[in-house]
C-alpha cells in the first residue's frame, strides 16, 4: 500500500482531436505525477482514439452531456479509484500543465483549502485574451460570488482547479450542469469547504470551438444567475465531512 498521495488530471474533451495530443504530451512532461483521464464528451471526431494512443485512460460518454456532466464523471472516477487530488485541465490547450505544481503547492499550504483555483486575473502580466462579452459575464459573477461568499473571487469561471478528497466526494455526488465552475464555488461555500485562488498563466484556445460561444453567453449568464439565486434560496446543508450530500439524480422521485 502506497502512502504517497495520488493525483489525477481530468481532461474533458469535446471534439478536440486537434489539440488533445499536445495537451496530453504537455501533461506527461510537465506534470508527471498526475495520472491522466480524458473524458470524451460524445465527440464525433477521433478525440478518444487520439487520447488512447497517447496512453491516457479514456471515459467515453455515449452522448454529449455538456461540460458539467463530463467533469462530474471525472469526479466519480477519482472518487471510485481513491485519488487524493484531482485537477481539471481543459482539452483545448487553454490551461498550462506546468502550472499544476503551483496548485499542488497551494493545496499543501495554509490555509489548507479544499479547492485551489487558478485565476487568470490575479497575475501581474495580465493579458489574457477574453472577448468583451465573456469578460462582462465573468465580472458579474465575480462580483456576485465575492459578495455571497464574502471573500474575493476573481475568476469564477476558471476550470483550472485542484480538488482534494472532500471536494472530490462532494462534486462526485452533485455537480452543476453547464458553466458549472461558478455554481461550484457556491456549493463549496454552502458545504463549508474552503477555496483559494492563485494566479496562473492561461492561453487562448488552441483550436476547436469553445463550449460557450459569444451568442450563447447571454443565455448562459441568465441561466447561471438563476442557478445562483435559487442556490441561495436552497436550504443550506451543513454537512460534516463524509455526510451525504443532497443529489437529485440518485434519489429518483
Amino acid at each position: 500500500m502506497s502512502t504517497e498521495p495520488s493525483y489525477l488530471a481530468v481532461v474533458p474533451a469535446y471534439n478536440e482531436s486537434m489539440t488533445i495530443a499536445r495537451v496530453l504530451q504537455a501533461l506527461q512532461e510537465r506534470a508527471p505525477r498526475f495520472d491522466v483521464l480524458v473524458v470524451d464528451d460524445g465527440s464525433t471526431d477521433d478525440t478518444a482514439a487520439v487520447a488512447e494512443r497517447a496512453g491516457a485512460r479514456v471515459l467515453k460518454l455515449p452522448f454529449n452531456l455538456g461540460i458539467g456532466g463530463a467533469v462530474q464523471s471525472g469526479f466519480v472516477f477519482a472518487r471510485d479509484h481513491g485519488y487524493d487530488f484531482m485537477s481539471q485541465v481543459d482539452g483545448d490547450g487553454q490551461h498550462e500543465p506546468g502550472e499544476l505544481e503551483k496548485l499542488v503547492c497551494a493545496m499543501g499550504a495554509p490555509p489548507w483549502p479544499d479547492m485551489v483555483c487558478g485565476s487568470r486575473f490575479l497575475s501581474d502580466d495580465f493579458h489574457y485574451p477574453t472577448p468583451v462579452s465573456r469578460r462582462t459575464g465573468i465580472h458579474v459573477f465575480a462580483t456576485l460570488l465575492s459578495w455571497i461568499v464574502s471573500a474575493r473571487v476573481s475568476d469564477p469561471t476558471s476550470g483550472f482547479r485542484l480538488y482534494n478528497r472532500r471536494a472530490i466526494q462532494l462534486f462526485a455526488r452533485d455537480y452543476p450542469h453547464d458553466y458549472p465552475e461558478v455554481e461550484a464555488v457556491l456549493m463549496l461555500h454552502h458545504h463549508r469547504l474552503a477555496m483559494r485562488e492563485i494566479p496562473v498563466r492561461m492561453y487562448a484556445r488552441g483550436g476547436g470551438v469553445s463550449s460557450i460561444s459569444n451568442g450563447k453567453s447571454a443565455y448562459y449568464m441568465v441561466k447561471v444567475l438563476l442557478a445562483l439565486l435559487v442556490g441561495l434560496a436552497r436550504r443550506r446543508p451543513v454537512v460534516d465531512p463524509g455526510d451525504r450530500a443532497p443529489v437529485a439524480a440518485e434519489q429518483g422521485v
Binding site: 498521495p5 479509484h81 481513491g82 487524493d84 487530488f85 489548507w112 482534494n164 478528497r165 472532500r166
Partner: peptide, 10 residues
Amino acid sequence: GHGRRFVSSD
C-alpha cells in the same frame, strides 16, 4: 467508494 490508495487529506 474508497479506493485502496485513500490517504486522509484533511
